[in-house]
Design a protein around this nucleic acid. Structure first.
Lengths: 338, 338
DNA sequence: TTGAAAGCGATACCAA
DNA sequence: TTGGTATCGCTTTCAA
């Protein structure tokens, strides 16, 4: 009683068009190998019946799912949006689909999701985090599914990686601030034990601060990642300013943190960048010239997604996945806040 | 040569555990029906071999995919992030997965995607747009897949709907502005022929403007949706101010538009809200009290996603999908800009 | 509590 | 250019 949907099958189409089902299959997959007259007839029947091929059966028989699994740390915010977009649009060009899930920055959630995704027999996996549990490694390694890690260049990648160096980016932005004439730069927006990359940027910052001859490394507090970026930014600025009142620039771990810092600065009546400069990270949607006009680091998010897609497509189509790391770099964008 | 991955099958597990494969299947799906001793043995083998069940085979045999397809207008920006999050987390509780795709506000892209998604034999479909092509209707109708429309309450829903009235929301915010004492309110941020909902909000605005006794309806220009929201906001404000210089409040079709308007106002040295008030729509991440402190309309995005998930789960588990529209309302959030 | 056999809807491989 | 037959890995149904 409770589920009497009936899907039109390939056999139904074949019967109606007076051919065998393999011919229908060919019309769909290799139209060139069917006489155009037959093809036209079959196509008409497909239309008429509203036939939609069953992908599960297709996957089972062909051992190709044309699915790529993607794991991002978070769907919220703007961080990975362009990367996901690049991935899915490039994949769609070749008829592949994206299976998307968020790990919420948890390595355990990640391996759980990897497990269920592998059940779909994906032709590739893409992950935006760089810290994995042992279970994830075992699962992925055992499956042989080509894997691409995104948004960083891990020392020891699982498969290949597409991204940039977060440490370098942190270093470069800090240097840039020194070059602009700021003398006492602080870093804010670190999260408790989750977002490893924010820590890498902090590391880059610290190195640059020392190299730049700054007396002390000024690290803001680590704050729960449950709080919004803006809150971390506002509280981070408050902390930094009370501990090191002569700070003249803050480098934030992301643009959302920078937004909070900027708002807090303005609320205190400080002029930005004259009294305090604010630099962000990510070049989010709202950082641009019609928005916050934030000085920040632009990451080629869309391109990272596209390149990852291409690597996987190449692998499934040609069988080779060169185990390389592709560095797409980053770019300092100078706007109004630093 | 080119794809010699080998997946562990249920039969492999069965052999090693010295049972039949149906017993392995039961351990996975109905653990209660297997003697605990046997179960333990099978589970140990599953672990040992790293067995991951093939979902495609499972779907094919059981005629249930435990997949829900979701179509959003866009992945970019923060608009649907919380809805998608609510959907996928509620679905995951019951072992269902989300297949996500973006339509870029195009009805044609939408029906194309619906076609391919249906190939996956989803147990449900969720769509955030309310305008569909004839093809989409035929496809969806013919398939019998339960469908939930989100983020609006269409007059003639395909299946059921979870959302709120965009027209009402536009009306209510406009009234709110009048109540705050603003006299000449304009609306900005309409897009060319794409985002129908922005138009509905504009309609609500226009009605409230008339009801509020405002002499004329002040609609900003329609601008290409390829431009960022912020740009639309900045240019919209410029337009409105040059055409109706005495405007004292602008209601924006989204928070990203409001961000642009706000920035433009500040750049012109206007005080907000004394010289000009700015109201947004959506209560995005960056609108909050540590960020822009934007007066806006909050949409229960997360809850919308959860409710949609529940409707579908109920339907696939109990076989009934009451064809209702659920109105989750909205809320005016008063902050610093109006 | 367990198992054997028969599909599910497609593709692969080999013939015609 | 077309078709027959044997899978693909699992669940269903019925029997033991």
């Amino acid at each position: 009683m409770r589920d009497e949907r009936k899907w039109v099958t390939m056999q139904d189409v074949a019967d109606r068009a007076a051919v065998s089902k393999i011919t229908v299959s060919r019309v769909l997959r290799k139209p060139g190998k069917v006489k155009s007259e037959t093809r036209a007839r079959v196509e008409a029947v497909i239309q008429e019946l509203g036939y939609v091929p069953d992908e599960a059966a297709c996957t089972l028989a062909s051992r190709k799912s044309r699915i790529v699994g993607a794991l991002v740390s978070t769907l919220a915010g703007s961080i990975f949006a362009s990367t996901v977009d690049g991935l899915s649009s490039r994949l769609r060009e070749d008829g592949y689909r994206l299976l998307l899930a968020a790990t919420d920055y948890s390595a355990d959630t990640e391996s759980e999701i990897v497990g269920t995704m592998l059940g779909r027999r994906p032709d590739g996996m893409v992950m935006t985090s760089s810290q994995h549990t042992e279970a994830t490694h075992v699962l992925l390694g055992g499956s042989g599914v080509p894997t691409v890690e995104l948004w960083d260049l891990p020392k020891k990648p699982i498969g290949c990686a597409v991204g940039f160096s977060n440490t370098d980016a942190g270093y470069t932005m800090t240097r840039f601030l020194f070059e602009q004439g700021y003398k006492r730069v602080a870093f804010i927006g670190r999260m408790i034990d989750r977002d490893v990359r924010a820590h890498m940027r902090a590391t880059g910052y610290a190195a640059a601060a020392r190299d730049g001859g700054q007396a002390e490394v000024r690290l803001g507090p680590t704050i729960s990642h449950d709080e919004s970026g803006a809150k971390r930014g506002a509280e981070g600025l408050a902390y930094v300013l009370s501990r090191w009142p002569d700070t003249d620039a803050v480098f934030c771990s992301s643009d959302s943190v920078a937004l909070g810092a900027l708002s807090e600065a303005l609320r205190r009546g400080l002029r930005v960048p004259q009294d305090i400069a604010v630099a962000g990270f990510g070049d989010f949607e709202y950082a641009g010239k019609f928005g916050l006009r934030l000085t920040t680091v632009r990451i080629p998010g869309h391109e990272i997604g596209e390149r990852a897609a291409e690597l996987i497509l190449e692998r499934t189509q040609n069988g080779v996945l060169p185990n390389t790391s592709i560095d797409l770099g980053f770019e300092i964008v100078r706007r109004a806040t630093a």
